[in-house]
């Protein structure tokens, strides 16, 4: 009886410890583990918030099979940096009603954060942010990409995004004539 009671208590303590843990462990598609602040993860990612609330977080590493280790490292890095910076009221409200709220310019550290990424790493990070439902990270990464597209011709855009032109010459000419104002710079 005594032993059983002890076991029960130990079990209880372990559960409490789990609930009290202030980090969650995430596992990338290639099996690498990353620790991230539970509060930041829940605040910044709707998907992770749902998993934490639903109890589907695995202590040994929650599988995120769609995200490679480099992108996940950047996600975790972003969450941790975010946890250390003081979020402004405007930032919080923009993550709640992102469709109608005006886009808030990236803060200095966010700009630096995306500026140091390689082209491929930036694209992988956008995909990861989209998969995890991270509105603010999507805003910041997409802002960087739209800056990369400024002043670029459709040909240069295809190169940046690795896409094949499937228009005929005639189709392109027709659209260019119809929307000539968009090409005054060329």
């Amino acid at each position: 009886m005594e032993v059983d009671k002890g076991k029960g208590e130990a079990e209880e303590t372990r559960k409490v410890a789990e609930a009290d843990r202030d980090t969650v462990t995430l596992k990338s598609s290639d099996g690498k583990l990353f620790e991230v602040s539970k509060e930041a993860a829940a605040r910044l990612s709707t998907v992770l918030a749902g998993m934490i609330a639903g109890g589907s977080i695995d202590d040994n590493g929650t599988d995120l099979k769609q995200i490679g280790s480099e992108a996940l490292e950047n996600v975790v890095d972003y969450c941790n940096k975010h946890a250390n910076s003081i979020p402004s009221a405007a930032l919080i409200s923009s993550s709640i009603s992102f469709n109608t709220a005006p886009f808030k310019e990236p803060e200095e550290w966010e700009r630096k954060f995306v500026d140091r990424l390689s082209h491929d790493a930036l694209f992988d990070l956008v995909e990861a942010a989209n998969f995890l439902g991270m509105e603010r990270l999507l805003d910041v990464t997409c802002h960087k990409i739209s800056e990369m597209m400024k002043g670029k011709s459709p040909d240069q855009i295809r190169e940046v995004f690795n896409i094949k032109n499937d228009y005929t010459k005639e189709e392109l000419e027709e659209i260019r004539q119809e929307l000539a104002w968009a090409f005054y710079d060329d």
Binding site: K152, P154, I157, K164, I175, W181, A182, F183
Partner: peptide, 12 residues
């Protein structure tokens, strides 16, 4: 203009 140029990248 950015959106128009993007739309000319491909049909998708």
């Amino acid at each position: 203009a950015l959106l128009v140029r993007a739309a000319l990248a491909c049909k998708a």
